[in-house]
């Protein structure tokens, strides 16, 4: 009893979906333009510049892979900055994961005042990096900073912290722990989604608290840990504000806080070696990509996905 012929209905449907597609492109147009102008275009330009010698005043001069050769062959500060960043990552990542996970586990014990504790632990993570760095520079003051004053109470003569090549990176690691709250919130959400039946089953099997943590909690939140590790690698390779503010952009003493991105900034905006800075940025991208892929690659061995197990 249909009154309209099928071809007309089909045409209307076709025109409706064409209308929808046009609307779709209109809605995402801001991103398309932004992506082309502020991301893709600059990316290609940056890739080209990384093969050039360029001070931004004269036209870029093509030098092939010279910038990259220079980095790994002749620039001890580049190697140093890579080392500093890796040392920092290697120290801050595991300590950070353990700290934020421990706080989250404590908060997950059905404690009263959860909102209060959560607020205290998360608060430092949202504060302006400049103000935080200034505060910690003062906290680490060897003579009058609170850390060494407290250590002195226990009869310990505190180190020179930020002014000593050995203790500067540990100081940055301690400072980064003050921002452990963001990870803690993510872990807490992960912990709260672990089904209680699993704990009950483990109890029936006679598991103690530690056993439950190792056999139930850790596998169940391993995807969350995995996500945090990946984000942590990306973040720790991009430390800039704290190092810049604390050392006035110098990476002192003796280049011991010359974080990778700090050196990249110096190359670009203090030495005006724009080609070199771009080459460094691409190496940074590759390092982040490689580390992320490594974590992804090994994840099968230690990350437990409920859905996959059920399928298998």
């Amino acid at each position: 009893m249909s009154s309209s012929p099928p071809s007309a209905a089909g045409r209307r449907k076709w025109s409706l979906s064409r209308r929808e597609a046009i609307d779709g492109y209109i809605f995402i147009a801001p991103w398309i333009i932004g992506f082309l102008v502020f991301t893709l275009g600059p990316m290609l330009f940056s890739l080209y510049v990384s093969l050039c010698d360029w001070d931004m005043l004269n036209p870029p001069r093509f030098v092939g892979l010279d910038n990259y050769r220079q980095m790994f062959g002749h620039d001890f500060r580049f190697v140093k900055s890579l080392g500093v960043t890796m040392k920092y990552t290697a120290m801050s990542l595991p300590i950070g994961v353990i700290t934020s996970l421990s706080i989250a586990v404590l908060l997950n014990q059905r404690v009263k005042g959860l909102t209060f504790f959560r607020a205290i632990f998360y608060l430092p993570a949202i504060l302006p990096g400049v103000a935080v760095a200034m505060l910690w520079k003062w906290i680490f003051n060897p003579d009058s900073g609170i850390i060494n004053l407290i250590l002195a109470k226990f009869g310990i003569h505190g180190p020179q912290w930020l002014t000593s090549p050995e203790w500067a990176i540990p100081a940055f690691v301690i400072m980064s722990l003050w921002g452990a709250g963001a990870g803690m919130i993510i872990y807490l959400a992960g912990l709260q989604s672990v089904p209680t039946q699993l704990y009950e089953a483990a109890e029936l099997d006679g598991a103690a608290a530690w056993g439950k943590f190792v056999n139930v909690t850790l596998p169940m939140i391993s995807p969350t840990i995995f996500f945090n590790v990946v984000m942590g690698i990306i973040a720790s390779f991009q430390v800039f504000v704290s190092a810049f503010v604390i050392t006035g952009g110098a990476g002192s003493p003796a280049y011991s806080t010359l974080f990778y991105v700090l050196y990249l900034y110096q190359k670009a905006f203090q030495y005006f070696s724009m080609g070199y800075a771009c080459a460094m940025a691409w190496i940074l991208f590759l390092v982040i990509l490689a580390l992320t892929l490594v974590v992804f690659g090994t994840s099968k061995r230690w990350v437990y996905y409920e859905g996959e197990r059920a399928r298998g």
């Binding site: 992506f35 940056s46 510049v49 940025a281």
Partner: peptide, 29 residues
Amino acid sequence: LRFPGRNALFIVLLSTMMLPAQVTMVPLF
């Protein structure tokens, strides 16, 4: 909204999150 290429474009958008800002810093400047 459904439009051709939607999923591919969305993957492009997601992958831009991986790109460190330093890569585009000099050209944008």
